[in-house]
Each structure stands twice: as C-alpha cells, then as structure tokens.
Design a protein around this nucleic acid. Sequence first.
RNA 1: GCACCUUUAGCUCAACUGGAUAGAGCGUUGGUCUACGGAACCAAAGGCUAGGGAUUCGAAUUCCUUAAGGUGCACCA
Length: 555
Amino acid sequence: MDYREYIVNKLNLENITAADVALPPNSQMGDYALPCFKLAKAFRKSPVAIAEELKNSFVCDEVISEVSAVNGYLNFKINKMGLVSSVLNRVLSEGDCYGSSDVGKGKTVCVEYSSVNVAKPFHIGHLSTTVIGGALYKIYKFLGYNVVGINHLGDYGTQFGKLISAYKRWGNREEVDKGGIHAINELYVRFNKEADELMEQEARNYFRLIESGDREANELFEWFKELTIDYVNTIYEKLNITFDSYAGERFYIDKMQPVIDELKEKGLLKESEGAQIVDLEPYGMPPCLVLRSDGASLYATRDLAAAIYRKNTYNFYKCLYVVAYQQNLHFKQFFKVLELMGKDWAKDLVHVAYGMVSLEDGAMSTRNGRVVWLEDVINKCVEKAYAVIDEKNSALENKRQIAETVGLGAVIFGALYNNKIKDVTFSYDKVLSFDGETSVYVQYTCARANSVLEKSGKSFALPEKYEPNAQEYEVIKQLSTFPQTIKDAAEKYEPSLIARYAVDLAQKYNKFYIDCKILSAEGETKHFRLSLTEAVHVTLKNALSLLGIGAPEKM
RNA sequence: GCACCUUUAGCUCAACUGGAUAGAGCGUUGGUCUACGGAACCAAAGGCUAGGGAUUCGAAUUCCUUAAGGUGCACCA
C-alpha cells in the first residue's frame, strides 16, 4: 500500500501529489504530513487555518487512524495494526525475495566495472569500482533486470610491449610461475625505472609484434593475461563478484574501423594538428581525439566501438560505467560524440562516478612502492576477525570460515557505506574497526536475532491483530521501506543507501531487543516479537547480500 | 587560466531531493551486566551547515559570489 497516494486521493486537492506528502521529523507527530503552505495562495488563507480546516473535514478510516493540525502541517497517523500485519505478512511470506521486484522485466542493464589491467595486481584503488559495480549488478538483478557484468580489461597498449621487453631481459618462466602477478608487476616496475630510449624503442617494437600477430609475443601476452585473470578471480570469489563478459580493449581493435568510417561519413571527423578529432567546441568541451597523428586509435575510439557493440549485442536499456570521477570529461565527450552520430540511445549511457582513494601520506604510487595491496587488506581484516571471534566465542565451529565472512564484509562495507562521490583516505584503523556503523554491527545483530529464533524452536505464528509498542513500531516502519530503498539505490546508482538502511534497521532492532523481552513474553506478544525478529533477520540478510556480504548464523 | 566536484559536531559521514527542533558512528564524560549474545544499549557535552548576498511562507539543499581542497583540460588509459 502506498500511503502517500492514499492520502492524496482521499484529500482530493488540486495541485497536490504524492510527492508533496512529507515525513514528520519524529513519529510522535505522525507517520506522514502535508505541509499546507503551498495551498495558502489558492485558498487565500493562512496555512494554519487551512490545516485546521482540512483536519476538521477529514474522516478517519481503516487506513488513517488520526489527523492533527500543527503549525500549518496536516499530520497523519496510520493505522498501526494494518501496517503491522501487511508488512510482516509480506516479509515473512517473501523471505529472501523480500525487496525484489519485476520492474526490470525484459530490460537489460550493462554494468562495466572493476576493469582490471593485465599484469597489474589489485590495490585498494580498485576496490571501489569493484564493489560498487558488484552491488549495482546484484541490485538490478534483484529488481528483475537482465544484467550483463562487463570487465573491460585493460589489455591493450604499449605497456605490454614494455612488459615483454622486461620479461625477455630479466624474467624467466619459473620465477613468474612462482611469483605470479606480483613477479610480473616487478618486471614492469623495473622496466619503467631503468628504461632508456633504446629500451623504449624495443618496447614499441614488441607491442607492434603483438599487434601483427607474432606468435611468441602473443603467447607471452596471453600467458600474462591468463595469470591476471586467475589471480583476480580468486579475489572476485571472495568479494562475491561475477562477470558475464571479459571483453576488454583488445576485443574492440577490429571493431573500430566501422566507427571511424561512420564518423567520416557523417562529417564529424576533422583533422587538427595531424590528428583526427571530433570538434566539441560548440558544447564547451575540448575536442575528442579519435585517431593519433600516427593513425593509432585512442581510449575514446575503443569506448565508442564498445558502446556500439554493446548496444547491438545486448540492446541495453541502460549501460553503466563504474569509473572514477577523474574521467568525467572523457565520458562526457564520448557520450556527446555518440549523440552527434545520431545514436538516440546515447542518453542511456551513464557514467557512475566515484571518489578517489589516497593514502595518509598522499596519493598512491606503484613506482615508489606507496601502495596498499587489496590482498593485504583482506588478510589483515580476516585475521583480526578471527582474533576477535577466538576471544569472544572460541568454542564456535567453522571459526575460519566465519572470520572470512566477517573480515571480507568489513572490507566491502567500508567501501560502500559512504556516498560514492566522496574521496577517501585509506586507513587500517578504519577498516579494522568493528564497532558502530559497520557490517560487523549488522552481522552481529543478525546473529543475535538468529540466536533468539533458534532458542524459540521456530514455532510461532503472526497474530492477526497486534497493537505494537513504540520500539516495535519503529522496527516495522523501517522494515516497510526496504523495497523502496532498493529502488532508490538503483535509480541513484548508490549502494550506500542499502548499507545505511541495514545499519538503521539493526539499530532499531537493537533498541527493541534491549527494551522488550522476546522469549519470556506471553502469548500473542511472544508470537509477534518472534515474527518481528524473523522479519528483521531475513531483511538484514537480504540487504547484506545485495552488497555482496554474508551473514553468519553465529559469530 | 577554463570546466567539473567537494566543504555539515574534535574526526568520519547522514539528512527521504525545498519542510517542523540538522541526525548517526568514532572519540570524550557518566551510566546499564540476577543477559533472549556487552561486537550491545542509555545519557551528557559538542553546530552561525566554509564566508557573504539573492530567490520565498520556509534553504544544509536552488541561484550568484568569495575562500579552501580535489580532479580534469591533444595524440596515456
């Protein structure tokens, strides 16, 4: 039931829509409110008088149990018993589908995220795109969309020539087999440190060999690529991340010529300083470079080809790019170019921009070793989780596995809790904190609820009618907003809304839990409170799972 | 220089998109353990929402402006 709609329909006033219905600052005042200031002009009366009049003519019913007029606001209290039974019935019957929907039925959403570079290990700078994209993937799926997760591999460019050159110079198969991606990365770093003009030339040659199909160069490249994918997959598995496509930059090299031809045909391509560009001056942007003066393609060229390929292949309803805000201009430019090409679907491309990660002593830099590897962060978090579990609950079975769930949860949640546009300074103190607004708090609440349920023998039934107390009612109201929260998160591309929702629900449940006895309550009260506990348990699990975080039954 | 982003409690962040007394966590101080899990709960202190203007019944939120910080701006991705 949409209460805002209901209220608006019942009031039947001109120019008032559901969007005008607001929420009072606290629930003693009411559950919904209509500010009457807008009506003052049309009615030629003071808002206070209007509210008073509307109050007097309003007839309460099954749904709205009370109206009051305060300072120009018309406040509504809804029938608690009605809300209670409809919300709990819904949560309990839908279970792990609670919050899902079919609004996306028949629509496809592409999500490009994570997009690792071949031969480069994961550092914490890659965490945001990976978990934000991963969460959006799950959120859209939950809403019934067909979702295509795309890892747009960074697998094209002169750096691979450098890599091969470095490998042939200093590397060997054994070392790389043993050291994996970090060994490859070291070779690359060493090359950048020691390279002179001669070596740079050699690297360019190797890159050309890759492009021209040279067997040895390609074998090496493919080997590096495989090592990279194997390596990142171990991390994706921990983070509960999946992809449907690993089509990276190389995938599009044979798909760029038609795009260039089309640009030419449409008269969009211009020569400037030897390069081929699309002039974007009329739109207040620098030109978009499509071909270098030596004829080589650029980032934008491949992105144009990729967008067109995706439209043709998936016929997406939306295509999201989860990429840091440094590339704002790039996306604005290439979206505009597609629009100029007459692609009416250019409006369906969305750059989901997020903030940067830096370290306490400044920006990260692979070259001088100022990096924090994601594996290290994960390991430390899991270790800490294990230590805490061992201390608090050492008799627990599966301690290792639970520590994984808790530790990884903390890593993921830390990257998803704040508005994605905010820059963050990485600190171990922050990720390793398990108190307060954290995934651990949510998981703890979940385990606590589960413990009560287990002790109850799970034999309870929701009473038909129940008048909730204040704490119970707060929990119910919070439960009722979960489906809308998920829709908001999808619409705003903001998984943090779900993370915050989970913490809010956990807080409200904990308040209830402290104030109200559950197992020792009597009759209907006990049945109701157990039902409520079950509903919270399942909703918290759903919320966490949309973020890629597990919820141990015990911890 | 130009464009975009950010600025809210000591710190990290919210504020349902223009509504009532700006809320959480961390930290600080003081409480709650005869408990269904204390990884919890309660309370206190802490704010001219960076400064200034404008719009209107009403602004943290919209517009202008100043300041501080960040990012980007031609052959890297």
